[in-house]
Design a protein around this nucleic acid. Structure first.
Lengths: 217, 217
DNA sequence: GTCTATACTATGATAGAC
DNA sequence: GTCTATCATAGTATAGAC
């Protein structure tokens, strides 16, 4: 019988630690507003979190929010930008440090992808799952960043196919599958998990190689 | 250079057709309320959709909703129950029809899982992504159904390991990865996609086999 | 079961003093 | 930049006639 002991029953987010990247988290009231909004958007969704709740959690009055952001929507927009740019930065950095072997490059990408979704799971959940609450004009730059990240996966896998080392049934769907399984990690990972983040990342990199080699054997 | 032509840029949901399972969709005002709520919850989230909007979309006055549901929360609860039970029913049916070979069983499960997320993508998106808006008491039976479905994957993969035909780096994470990549299909699949639902399902079944065999070769 | 009317509260955002 | 006070609107839900 399968082990139930590791079962994690996350409805949306398991981790409660880790909010914004260190580079952003710091600066004063504005930073506290972003952190407060991030937590509340994760817990109760964008529409479910009120301006007053965000202000209270940030330790200011609701009117003071408008000295830092012109609207509630712009708070979410900033969070989504931070999340997607941090993600993209990590992917590019991983590729830069990797040798040109497609398998090593894919491993590096997946590891960075999964690490992001473990280390900044709250940011990842909000960035990924609340985008539909932004008007399309405001969401556009975020989507562009996401397209760039998808393209990194696409290029690595396509190159592996061209070199004859990968043979997924469908390149675009392999990207969707690898990206999707990693995104979902943010929903269940918690620092209390039985494996370290590095071990989780390695395991998923292994899974990704299994996906792109699915027709090779 | 990788093909951009197949790029799909879903923020939350690509498909607009397909709402509730045929078995539920039919009956009168109550059915229309559920359908209307499903659409609105998918578009603007649970908290973002108002009772008045749901009523208007269902063709009744807002007060009339309360003749069918005691609260807005119970509308979402019913949708989530329908979604998760339909999902579980399909998985069990797939297993019942499969021969006892673990690879065939896993293929059957993944195909059913993916088909569900293509054919009822709106229901799947709401059932999966709005659960955190339910109080934990109301969400509990839904979570129990989800646990049962996870357990089906778990048992098939664990049995494959015991029989020596599967060797994923980690059984629980293989289940999470296979489940997660399938769940994400609901976010991008649309009837206009270049492949049929069966082809998508087959491809993902292939990916899943790649995941559980990741250490074998 | 559906309607009109409404109670009561919460919402996003602004005005203006300090 | 932060506060108190407030506007105008929208929110869930209920009362009671038909």
């Amino acid at each position: 019988m399968a082990d139930q002991g590791t079962a994690i029953r996350a409805r949306r987010l398991q981790a409660t630690e880790g909010d914004l990247p260190d580079s952003v988290a710091s600066d004063g009231t504005r930073g506290r507003i972003l952190e407060a909004a991030l937590h509340l958007f994760a817990e109760t969704s964008y529409a479910g979190a009120s301006i007053r709740e965000i202000a209270t959690a940030a330790g200011v009055q609701s009117a003071s929010l408008y000295a830092h952001f012109p609207s509630k929507e712009r708070i979410l927009a900033e969070i989504a930008v931070i999340g997607h740019e941090e993600h993209h930065r990590r992917l590019r950095h991983a590729l830069l440090e990797s040798r040109p072997d497609p398998a090593e490059q894919l491993t590096a990408l997946v590891r960075a992808h999964v690490r992001m979704h473990c280390e900044l799971s709250m940011l990842a959940v909000v960035s990924n799952n609340e985008l539909h609450s932004l008007s399309s004009a405001v969401a556009e730059p975020v989507m562009a960043t996401r397209d760039s990240s998808t393209q990194l996966f696409n290029e690595v896998i396509q190159r592996g196919v061209d070199l004859g080392v990968f043979a997924p049934a469908h390149v675009w769907m392999a990207v969707a599958a690898i990206g999707g399984m990693g995104i979902r990690v943010a929903n269940w990972y918690t620092p209390g998990f039985e494996l370290t983040i590095d071990e989780v990342a390695d395991t998923y990199a292994d899974f990704a190689l299994g996906i792109v080699r699915s027709e090779v054997h």
